[in-house]
Amino acid sequence: MLVIALLVVGLVFFTGGGVGILRFPDFFTRLHPAGKLDTLGSLLMMLAVAIYNLEHFSWEALLTSLKIMLIVLFIFLSSPTATHSIVDAGIRAGMVPWRKETPEEKAE
């Protein structure tokens, strides 16, 4: 039951990431849902899988679950770095972030 709840909540966060990538106006704002809703979504879904994997307890299952949590740790370390790297490339390519003051001319 807990597994299904965690899976569904993780899928909701992934949906937010996917829709946010489509809806936001420029790529600086698109990075916000893309880089981080996905991170939390993968944390929840991996947690669900790790708990489900421990249903019939054995040492190999425990090892596999620990490996899954290791992937989560790696994602939590690497995802902000990748996001920062993309932002840095955009700033240095001379892109100007989308501002609120002139929504009409920028949005068209």
Binding site: F13, G20, F24, F28, H32, L37, P97
Partner: peptide, 23 residues
Amino acid sequence: ILANLHVLYLVFHPRMMDLIEPE
């Protein structure tokens, strides 16, 4: 988790363009 819920609210809000204010 708190901040994710906030961004999730922003993403699914119909008038998202009025709410966000990037700077």
